[in-house]
Amino acid sequence: MNVIVCVKAVPDPKEICKIRIDPATKTLLRCDVPLVINPLDKNALEAALLLKEGRGASVTVISMGPPPAETIVKECMALGADRGILLSDRAFGGADAFATAYTLAGAIVKAGEYDLILCGMASSDGATEWVGPQIATFLGIPAVTMVRKFESQEGAAWRVLADWQNGYRRVEVRLPALLTITRDLNRPRALSFSGILKSRKKTIEQWGREFLDLPSEALGAKGSPTIVSEMSTVRNRRDVKMLRGTIEEKADQLVGLLAESGVL
Protein backbone atom coordinates (compact mmCIF):
# COMPACT_ATOMS: atom_id res chain seq x y z
CA MET A 1 0.00 0.00 0.00
CA ASN A 2 1.33 3.42 -0.97
CA VAL A 3 0.27 6.41 1.06
CA ILE A 4 1.06 9.97 0.09
CA VAL A 5 0.91 12.73 2.67
CA CYS A 6 0.84 16.37 1.59
CA VAL A 7 2.45 18.64 4.14
CA LYS A 8 2.85 22.38 4.29
CA ALA A 9 5.51 24.45 6.01
CA VAL A 10 3.73 27.18 7.96
CA PRO A 11 4.99 29.92 10.28
CA ASP A 12 4.90 28.56 13.84
CA PRO A 13 1.30 29.16 15.01
CA LYS A 14 2.64 29.92 18.51
CA GLU A 15 4.43 32.96 17.10
CA ILE A 16 1.96 33.86 14.39
CA CYS A 17 0.93 37.05 16.17
CA LYS A 18 4.39 38.44 15.37
CA ILE A 19 3.53 38.48 11.66
CA ARG A 20 1.97 41.77 10.69
CA ILE A 21 1.01 43.62 7.60
CA ASP A 22 3.31 46.56 7.03
CA PRO A 23 0.87 49.48 6.79
CA ALA A 24 3.22 51.31 4.39
CA THR A 25 4.10 48.60 1.90
CA LYS A 26 1.02 46.39 2.42
CA THR A 27 3.27 43.37 2.54
CA LEU A 28 3.78 40.79 5.26
CA LEU A 29 6.46 41.37 7.87
CA ARG A 30 7.49 37.82 8.75
CA CYS A 31 9.84 38.73 11.61
CA ASP A 32 11.82 35.45 11.50
CA VAL A 33 8.98 33.28 12.65
CA PRO A 34 10.29 29.72 12.21
CA LEU A 35 8.62 27.29 9.81
CA VAL A 36 6.97 24.22 11.28
CA ILE A 37 4.86 21.37 9.93
CA ASN A 38 1.26 22.55 9.62
CA PRO A 39 -0.28 21.08 12.81
CA LEU A 40 -3.09 19.16 11.09
CA ASP A 41 -0.64 17.71 8.56
CA LYS A 42 1.01 16.01 11.52
CA ASN A 43 -2.26 14.18 12.15
CA ALA A 44 -2.32 13.17 8.48
CA LEU A 45 1.27 11.93 8.70
CA GLU A 46 0.47 10.03 11.90
CA ALA A 47 -2.41 8.27 10.16
CA ALA A 48 -0.01 7.26 7.37
CA LEU A 49 2.64 6.06 9.81
CA LEU A 50 0.05 3.91 11.60
CA LEU A 51 -0.75 2.32 8.22
CA LYS A 52 2.97 1.74 7.75
CA GLU A 53 3.22 0.02 11.10
CA GLY A 54 -0.06 -1.83 10.78
CA ARG A 55 0.13 -3.07 7.22
CA GLY A 56 3.55 -2.19 5.89
CA ALA A 57 2.40 0.81 3.87
CA SER A 58 5.07 2.92 2.24
CA VAL A 59 4.78 6.59 3.16
CA THR A 60 5.75 9.40 0.80
CA VAL A 61 5.67 13.00 1.94
CA ILE A 62 5.27 15.78 -0.62
CA SER A 63 5.56 19.44 0.22
CA MET A 64 5.51 22.50 -1.97
CA GLY A 65 7.35 25.49 -0.64
CA PRO A 66 10.48 27.62 -0.68
CA PRO A 67 13.87 25.92 -0.11
CA PRO A 68 13.75 26.39 3.71
CA ALA A 69 10.69 24.09 3.71
CA GLU A 70 13.18 21.27 3.25
CA THR A 71 13.61 21.19 7.03
CA ILE A 72 10.01 20.20 7.56
CA VAL A 73 10.26 17.42 4.97
CA LYS A 74 13.35 16.22 6.83
CA GLU A 75 11.35 16.27 10.03
CA CYS A 76 8.66 14.12 8.39
CA MET A 77 11.38 11.63 7.39
CA ALA A 78 12.65 11.62 10.98
CA LEU A 79 9.10 10.91 12.13
CA GLY A 80 9.10 7.84 9.89
CA ALA A 81 8.20 8.73 6.30
CA ASP A 82 10.03 6.59 3.74
CA ARG A 83 10.34 9.10 0.96
CA GLY A 84 10.36 12.89 0.89
CA ILE A 85 9.76 15.17 -2.06
CA LEU A 86 10.12 18.93 -1.99
CA LEU A 87 8.54 20.88 -4.83
CA SER A 88 10.52 24.05 -5.01
CA ASP A 89 10.75 26.34 -7.99
CA ARG A 90 10.26 30.04 -8.59
CA ALA A 91 7.57 29.03 -11.07
CA PHE A 92 5.48 27.66 -8.17
CA GLY A 93 5.62 30.92 -6.20
CA GLY A 94 2.50 32.92 -5.46
CA ALA A 95 0.16 29.98 -5.98
CA ASP A 96 -3.35 30.09 -4.56
CA ALA A 97 -5.13 26.95 -3.39
CA PHE A 98 -6.14 26.02 -6.94
CA ALA A 99 -2.64 26.28 -8.44
CA THR A 100 -1.14 24.58 -5.38
CA ALA A 101 -3.52 21.66 -5.75
CA TYR A 102 -2.75 21.47 -9.48
CA THR A 103 1.00 21.35 -8.86
CA LEU A 104 0.70 18.79 -6.05
CA ALA A 105 -1.56 16.63 -8.21
CA GLY A 106 1.09 16.75 -10.96
CA ALA A 107 3.76 15.69 -8.49
CA ILE A 108 1.61 12.86 -7.14
CA VAL A 109 1.19 11.46 -10.65
CA LYS A 110 4.97 11.66 -11.08
CA ALA A 111 5.60 9.99 -7.72
CA GLY A 112 4.07 6.73 -8.88
CA GLU A 113 1.26 4.41 -7.81
CA TYR A 114 -0.79 5.41 -4.79
CA ASP A 115 -3.70 4.01 -2.82
CA LEU A 116 -4.35 6.82 -0.42
CA ILE A 117 -3.58 10.52 -0.18
CA LEU A 118 -3.83 12.22 3.20
CA CYS A 119 -3.86 15.94 3.93
CA GLY A 120 -4.46 18.00 7.03
CA MET A 121 -8.00 19.40 7.06
CA ALA A 122 -6.73 22.99 6.77
CA SER A 123 -3.52 24.94 6.99
CA SER A 124 -2.96 27.14 10.00
CA ASP A 125 -1.79 30.10 7.94
CA GLY A 126 -3.83 30.22 4.75
CA ALA A 127 -6.98 28.94 6.44
CA THR A 128 -8.51 27.60 3.25
CA GLU A 129 -9.41 23.94 3.26
CA TRP A 130 -9.37 23.66 -0.49
CA VAL A 131 -6.07 22.06 -1.46
CA GLY A 132 -7.00 18.50 -0.45
CA PRO A 133 -10.35 18.18 -2.24
CA GLN A 134 -9.00 20.04 -5.27
CA ILE A 135 -6.05 17.63 -5.60
CA ALA A 136 -8.63 14.84 -5.63
CA THR A 137 -10.59 16.60 -8.36
CA PHE A 138 -7.50 17.02 -10.53
CA LEU A 139 -6.60 13.36 -10.03
CA GLY A 140 -10.18 12.23 -10.63
CA ILE A 141 -10.40 10.36 -7.33
CA PRO A 142 -12.96 10.71 -4.52
CA ALA A 143 -12.34 12.94 -1.51
CA VAL A 144 -13.73 12.93 2.00
CA THR A 145 -12.95 16.01 4.06
CA MET A 146 -12.74 16.43 7.83
CA VAL A 147 -12.27 12.76 8.65
CA ARG A 148 -12.29 12.14 12.39
CA LYS A 149 -12.30 8.35 12.54
CA PHE A 150 -11.52 5.30 10.42
CA GLU A 151 -14.35 2.88 11.02
CA SER A 152 -13.30 0.13 8.66
CA GLN A 153 -10.13 -0.03 6.63
CA GLU A 154 -10.74 -3.40 5.03
CA GLY A 155 -10.95 -4.04 1.31
CA ALA A 156 -11.18 -1.46 -1.42
CA ALA A 157 -14.02 0.51 0.18
CA TRP A 158 -13.26 2.13 3.54
CA ARG A 159 -15.75 3.49 5.99
CA VAL A 160 -14.88 6.74 7.67
CA LEU A 161 -16.62 9.22 9.92
CA ALA A 162 -16.37 12.88 8.95
CA ASP A 163 -17.37 15.98 10.91
CA TRP A 164 -20.87 17.33 10.20
CA GLN A 165 -23.24 19.85 11.79
CA ASN A 166 -24.03 18.65 15.31
CA GLY A 167 -22.63 15.21 14.63
CA TYR A 168 -20.90 13.26 11.93
CA ARG A 169 -21.31 11.77 8.50
CA ARG A 170 -20.65 8.08 7.86
CA VAL A 171 -19.06 7.77 4.43
CA GLU A 172 -18.04 4.86 2.28
CA VAL A 173 -15.16 5.66 -0.03
CA ARG A 174 -13.42 3.52 -2.60
CA LEU A 175 -9.63 3.64 -2.81
CA PRO A 176 -7.63 5.25 -4.26
CA ALA A 177 -9.01 8.26 -2.43
CA LEU A 178 -7.99 11.48 -0.74
CA LEU A 179 -8.93 12.13 2.87
CA THR A 180 -8.44 15.31 4.86
CA ILE A 181 -7.78 14.70 8.52
CA THR A 182 -8.93 16.48 11.69
CA ARG A 183 -7.13 16.55 15.00
CA ASP A 184 -9.61 14.08 16.47
CA LEU A 185 -8.27 11.20 14.36
CA ASN A 186 -5.09 10.57 16.36
CA ARG A 187 -2.35 12.03 18.49
CA PRO A 188 0.74 12.72 16.41
CA ARG A 189 3.91 11.09 17.69
CA ALA A 190 6.83 13.10 18.99
CA LEU A 191 10.06 13.54 17.11
CA SER A 192 12.66 11.13 18.53
CA PHE A 193 16.45 11.08 18.49
CA SER A 194 16.57 7.58 16.99
CA GLY A 195 14.07 8.60 14.33
CA ILE A 196 16.30 11.54 13.45
CA LEU A 197 19.30 9.21 13.23
CA LYS A 198 17.45 6.67 11.10
CA SER A 199 16.54 9.40 8.64
CA ARG A 200 20.24 10.22 8.11
CA LYS A 201 20.42 8.01 5.05
CA LYS A 202 17.18 9.24 3.55
CA THR A 203 17.59 11.90 0.92
CA ILE A 204 15.00 14.42 -0.13
CA GLU A 205 14.07 14.59 -3.78
CA GLN A 206 13.90 18.14 -5.06
CA TRP A 207 11.56 18.55 -7.97
CA GLY A 208 11.16 21.66 -10.07
CA ARG A 209 8.84 22.64 -12.89
CA GLU A 210 10.85 20.98 -15.63
CA PHE A 211 10.89 17.67 -13.84
CA LEU A 212 7.14 17.81 -13.31
CA ASP A 213 6.69 18.77 -16.93
CA LEU A 214 3.72 21.01 -16.25
CA PRO A 215 2.93 24.14 -18.30
CA SER A 216 4.23 27.22 -16.48
CA GLU A 217 1.05 29.19 -17.20
CA ALA A 218 -0.81 26.69 -14.97
CA LEU A 219 1.56 27.17 -12.04
CA GLY A 220 2.26 29.70 -9.32
CA ALA A 221 0.79 33.17 -9.56
CA LYS A 222 0.12 32.72 -13.30
CA GLY A 223 -1.96 29.63 -12.73
CA SER A 224 -3.91 31.10 -9.82
CA PRO A 225 -7.46 32.23 -10.54
CA THR A 226 -7.45 34.44 -7.45
CA ILE A 227 -5.12 37.25 -6.50
CA VAL A 228 -4.71 39.32 -3.39
CA SER A 229 -5.70 42.74 -4.65
CA GLU A 230 -5.07 44.59 -1.44
CA MET A 231 -3.94 44.24 2.11
CA SER A 232 -5.17 46.71 4.62
CA THR A 233 -4.61 47.13 8.29
CA VAL A 234 -8.17 48.24 8.95
CA ARG A 235 -9.74 46.93 12.07
CA ASN A 236 -13.26 47.08 13.31
CA ARG A 237 -12.54 49.99 15.54
CA ARG A 238 -14.68 51.02 18.48
CA ASP A 239 -14.09 53.85 20.90
CA VAL A 240 -13.05 52.20 24.08
CA LYS A 241 -13.72 53.47 27.55
CA MET A 242 -11.04 52.14 29.90
CA LEU A 243 -12.16 51.52 33.45
CA ARG A 244 -9.94 53.19 36.06
CA GLY A 245 -9.14 52.60 39.69
CA THR A 246 -8.12 49.63 41.77
CA ILE A 247 -8.95 46.12 40.72
CA GLU A 248 -11.92 46.17 43.15
CA GLU A 249 -13.18 49.47 41.81
CA LYS A 250 -12.95 48.24 38.25
CA ALA A 251 -14.93 45.13 39.12
CA ASP A 252 -17.59 47.29 40.84
CA GLN A 253 -17.90 49.53 37.79
CA LEU A 254 -18.17 46.55 35.49
CA VAL A 255 -20.89 44.91 37.60
CA GLY A 256 -22.78 48.21 37.47
CA LEU A 257 -22.48 48.40 33.69
CA LEU A 258 -23.50 44.78 33.25
CA ALA A 259 -26.53 45.35 35.47
CA GLU A 260 -27.42 48.44 33.43
CA SER A 261 -27.28 46.48 30.18
CA GLY A 262 -29.64 43.91 31.67
CA VAL A 263 -27.20 41.05 31.79
CA LEU A 264 -27.47 40.47 35.53
Partner: peptide
Protein backbone atom coordinates in the same frame (compact mmCIF):
# COMPACT_ATOMS: atom_id res chain seq x y z
CA UNK B 1 23.50 21.14 11.47
CA UNK B 2 19.93 20.37 10.42
CA UNK B 3 20.22 17.18 12.45
CA UNK B 4 21.27 19.09 15.54
CA UNK B 5 18.41 21.53 15.02
CA UNK B 6 16.07 18.53 14.95
CA UNK B 7 17.60 17.21 18.18
CA UNK B 8 16.80 20.58 19.70
CA UNK B 9 13.26 20.54 18.38
CA UNK B 10 12.71 17.01 19.71
Amino acid sequence: TDEQEMFRKA
